[in-house]
Amino acid sequence: MSTPETSTAVPVAAGDGDGAGGPILKVEGIHTYYGAIHAIKGVTLEVRKGEIVTLIGANGAGKSTTLRSINGLNRPREGRITFQGEDITNRPAHEVVAMGISQSPEGRRLFPRMSVLENLEMGAFQRTDRQNFGEDLDRVYDLFPRLAERKTQKAGTLSGGEQQMVAIGRALMARPKLLMLDEPSMGLAPIFVEKIFEIIVEINSQGTPILLVEQNALMALDVAKRGYVMETGQIAITDDADRLSENEQVKKAYLGIA
């Protein structure tokens, strides 16, 4: 378990304000390796019902590896991950998705030679309630009207912003109980970044808790309720998002404010 000295952990009491509730995801002291590299050294975090939680930090701090530990692509060697009270530490990735965690991966990772519609279909792969498929598709098209226009186009031919829309839409097609977004603003034009963050807030307001990994700390802290700052495989600071934005260390290191 890692609680470095820099920590100013002030856990928000469960159930206070805007529908935030008990933890839906709990990550407890996980250690994850990339081959021989000890990438995650005792990370503990949680996501509660209805909230946006952001995980910020520099490149290579271990943010994406943390997500890969949760979604089953890179199993932790130590520690425990529970989702809705169930232990998912050693579950294979496809089962984690079936339980309700879906993800928009870093770099979007669309299926480039499949159409936009087929990509969205793949998002719903684990769903057994096929009759709601149309309804969810409409919801995604409501959020991203552009995708409805491009549904027959090959995903690899879309612009970066449009690809990000497909990646988020695809993750939503799983009707997730927890949505994980990995660097959704990376490489996008500023106007698209604004748009993507608006969408993130909108998805959350419809009731889906979100774990948001971002390098754009300013924007991420703006939409999040709580935040974790990662440094070299550990959680360095955790606090309410608005207090993190005021934190001197965070300001210096991640917000570019002296």
Partner: peptide, 17 residues
């Protein structure tokens, strides 16, 4: 087809690779 184009992304979609 999905697995042939991106194995990790397929797993994230719930495909048993």
């Amino acid at each position: 087809r999905a697995t042939s184009q991106d194995r990790d992304a397929s797993a994230m979609m719930g495909i048993d690779v």
